[in-house]
Amino acid sequence: MSEVLYVAVLVLYGAATVFYLVFLLRSVGSRGKAAVWTLAAGFAVHCLFTAARYLEAGYTPITTMHESLSFFSLAIVGFFLAMAGKYRVALLGSFVTPLAMMAMLASASFPSAIAPLNPALRSGWLGIHTIIAFGGYAAFAVACCAGIMYLLQERYLKKKKLGALYRRLPSLDTLDDINYRCLTIGFPLLTIAIISGAIWAESAWGAYWSWDPKETWSLITWFIYAALLHGRLTIGWRGRRAAVLAIVGFGFILFTFVGVNLWLPGLHSYR
């Protein structure tokens, strides 16, 4: 059952990616609708897949690379769809959807078998800690996409080379606003994820903080976003600088998420 749903998600996200890229490159008409509806359909099936997987495993399906990359993709798409209503920047999808698709493809490259869960991790914290963390990751992923769009648009304006993409891209102000909004959502989630992780660690491993690589890198990431938020609120970091930091920050998120799991052995490692 869940395999069928998984393939359906891949197909729908793939189609949405194609639609969004066509939407990005073809400048006339309103093909954005087809793209967002395909993506929404993919999201619905993705939710079903995750629920089915939850019922099969008996716990939040986020303990293997296969599962967690899929969940990462789900969170990104969900967060984007929630944002799409407010900002009406359809073109953002042309950047976010390929990212979600890549996460799904990466997920598909890992074995899909349900791994037996370490009994120490069997707790309600698994769901809370991971879902909050991935919610934060998703917000930062969208911030990164908005940042890339900002840098593109800023370059067009500075170089005075106003191509077709310049016309399609939203205003700098809108992109900066999306960046800020994502930061104000992502940062609290990341903070709560780290705190909830510490509480869970105390009950599972007996210590709040054990400088496990994942914990260390999460903290580094947290400092980056804390600096960005602080800079924004106090000395008016914005625009280009905020966009660059959002992209760098997301690079750290990716490393904390994928890199640490694969290359730095520790308590959080899983495959």
């Binding site: 310049y166 700098l172 102000d173 809108t174």
Partner: peptide, 9 residues
């Protein structure tokens, strides 16, 4: 038009 691309509204 340029102003709208910078400031939005």
């Amino acid at each position: 038009e340029l102003a709208k691309k910078i400031f939005g509204d």
